[in-house]
C-alpha cells in the first residue's frame, strides 16, 4: 500500500516537472511574450530552483532524510538562486 502511494506521488512529481519544463517555452527564446525585462530572470531562476527542490525532496527522498542533510540541500538551492539573482541584478 505504501509502495503504491509512494509511486503515485513520484508520478505526480514527474508530471509537475514535465509541465514546469514545458512552461519554460513561455519564457524561453522561442516565446514572443517574454518581454517582461524584470520578471523573466526571476521567473526562470525561481522555476529552476523549485524544480531542483522537487527532484531533491521526492526523487532523492530528502523529505524523509535526516534534518541536517535535508537542510543542507535546501539551503544550497536557496542560496544558489539568491546569489544568481543578486549577481544578475547588481548595478
Amino acid at each position: 500500500m505504501t509502495i503504491v502511494f509512494r509511486n503515485r506521488r513520484l508520478v505526480l512529481c514527474w508530471a509537475c516537472l514535465i509541465a514546469l519544463t514545458l512552461a519554460s517555452f513561455k519564457s524561453g527564446p522561442m516565446s514572443r511574450a517574454a518581454d517582461a525585462e524584470l520578471f523573466q530572470p526571476i521567473f526562470v531562476i525561481l522555476l529552476a530552483g523549485f524544480k531542483m527542490r522537487m527532484i531533491a525532496m521526492e526523487f532523492m527522498q530528502l523529505r524523509t532524510a535526516p534534518v541536517l542533510l535535508r537542510f543542507m540541500i535546501e539551503i544550497w538551492i536557496l542560496l544558489l538562486c539568491v546569489a544568481i539573482l543578486l549577481m544578475l541584478f547588481r548595478a
Binding site: 524561453g28 527564446p29 530572470p41 526562470v44 522555476l47 529552476a48 531542483m52 527532484i55 531533491a56 526523487f59
Partner: peptide, 24 residues
C-alpha cells in the same frame, strides 16, 4: 540512483542558464 538524480538536478539549472535566461 541518487547519483542519477543529481545529474538530473544539475541539468535543470544548466538548461535554465544556457537556454532560457535572457541575457541583457
Amino acid at each position: 540512483v541518487l547519483f542519477w538524480h543529481m545529474v538530473d538536478l544539475l541539468w535543470v539549472m544548466l538548461f535554465a542558464l544556457f537556454y532560457i535566461l535572457e541575457w541583457r
